[in-house]
């Protein structure tokens, strides 16, 4: 049934640190690489080496320029993927029951064998987390690497989503938000983790850490020394040339 569970035992999700993300796109590549070979239909590309390449991705990295009122603009890179919402509108709109939220860990998944590819769940998602695969005709979305995180065939350090595992700057963190003492819960609490577009009422699980406040550039302690008053011959020359001007 595509009704939502009242509550989930765990709330697995990601914390994405916008302060540390450098926009290298490694998470995009790792995600595409892993999800091309495991869970469900592979993420297809159309015309990948041609003039108009296009393809299915579960994670996209945007770059924004933010101009504060009283400081220089800053660049923020922002990975965008499924936020595994508590009140996921993509689940309830699904006519076939393909789209569902797991009671045990809160992961939102698509049963591709039941997906008719109507696209309504992608319309219902404010975050653009779902893309219809043009080759398979089924809806693809972030699975939180459900086939990695519980996979006992993998070494323990690999049992986290591919995007988190690969991130070279440690900007991505994976954990359980239902546990207030978990790494992600504490990180989010300490750094003021944000929910995206809260006005849509989706109650996203994933949190984004805002960029830390930048230091304000101080005047150099050597600055007074730079204002050199010329004296002697140079001082006389300076005065004379000033008069001519």
């Amino acid at each position: 049934m595509t009704t939502l569970p009242h509550s989930t035992t765990k709330k697995l999700g990601l914390v994405i640190d916008l302060d540390t993300c450098v926009g290298c796109q490694a998470c995009v590549t790792a995600c595409k690489g892993w999800n091309d070979q495991g869970y469900g239909a592979p993420l297809s590309d159309q015309d990948p080496y041609g003039a108009a390449p296009s393809g299915t991705f579960l994670n996209r990295v945007h770059s924004y320029q933010i101009t504060p009122e009283d400081a220089a603009p800053i660049i923020v890179n922002m990975p965008r993927s499924c936020l595994h919402c508590d009140d996921a509108p993509c689940v309830t709109v699904c006519p076939t029951g393909a789209s569902y939220k797991r009671t045990e860990d809160g992961i939102v998944l698509v049963n591709e064998d039941a997906c008719i590819g109507c696209g309504l769940c992608a319309w219902a998602c404010p975050y653009g987390a779902r893309e219809l695969d043009a080759a398979a005709g089924v809806m693809k979305k972030c699975t939180l690497c459900v086939d990695r995180i519980y996979n006992e065939n993998l070494p323990e350090q690999d049992r986290e989503p591919a995007c988190v595992r690969t991130c070279p700057t440690g900007a991505r963190h994976f954990g359980d938000f239902a546990d207030p003492q978990s790494h992600v819960s504490r990180l989010s609490a300490e750094r003021g983790g944000m929910a995206l577009m809260p006005e849509l009422g989706t109650k996203p699980v994933n949190r984004y850490l805002p960029p830390r406040k930048k230091d304000v550039m101080q005047a150099s302690p050597l600055a007074p020394l730079l204002d050199i008053q010329a004296s002697g011959f140079a001082g006389w020359l300076d005065k004379m040339l000033g008069k001519i001007g």
């Binding site: 924004y64 933010i66 404010p126 960029p211």
Partner: peptide, 16 residues
């Protein structure tokens, strides 16, 4: 949408 509006004016710098 980005959660960054409280810092300043947000505009797209580069598309994904």
């Amino acid at each position: 949408a980005t959660g960054l509006g409280s810092i300043g004016t947000v505009r797209v710098f580069e598309q994904p």
